[in-house]
Design a binder for these strands. Structure first.
Lengths: 76, 76
DNA sequence: TTCATTTGTAGAGAATACTCGGTGGTGAAA
DNA sequence: TTTCACCACCGAGTATTCTCTACAAATGAA
């Protein structure tokens, strides 16, 4: 049952969870990540709350600053 | 040299190449893929030509119809 | 060649991503 | 308590994605 729930998790949630987790792993604030990826601070907060479906361009910039492969941010 | 070029390929191009390759592997037309993913046909053509940076929501729907993991469409 | 299928491209409009300025809340340290 | 760093959220505006219609070029089979 738990498995099914995880498998059905929408991609926004997967991305949000991976983003926040990786950001915290690096001890980086939303503000710092936003600045480095040339994005707005409030936008980082928004996507970590699944408010928007980010474009792959933004995903790439975030992955670059998080020293992670873009695809990694989408794996469940 | 070839390696550097591939590594520097923008994510739109990586996605475009993977999408077209996987679609053709399944013998699926742009029209059929568009219909199944509930997208416009001309839009499929556009993204295979890197005209837009797709959202992860669209990426997910395409991956679903191509029987592939969303992350796979972003691996180089 | 001829016909059918598929694909490329352009333009206009609707939908949504993304920016920007501000307000307030939480928890930890002084 | 006060201060500070970090975060959630709210409009409102700008930029871009995505839809739709139309037409033309390419491709392949008969």
């Amino acid at each position: 049952m738990q498995v099914l729930l995880i498998l059905n998790m929408a991609i926004r949630e997967i991305f949000a969870r991976n983003l926040r987790q990786r950001r915290k792993e690096l001890g980086m604030s939303q503000e710092e990540l936003a600045h480095r990826a040339d994005l707005d601070r409030t936008y980082i907060s928004s996507i970590e709350h699944c408010k928007y479906g980010v474009t792959i361009d933004v995903l790439e910039r975030l992955a670059n600053e998080l020293n992670i492969d873009p695809a990694e941010l989408l794996v469940n």
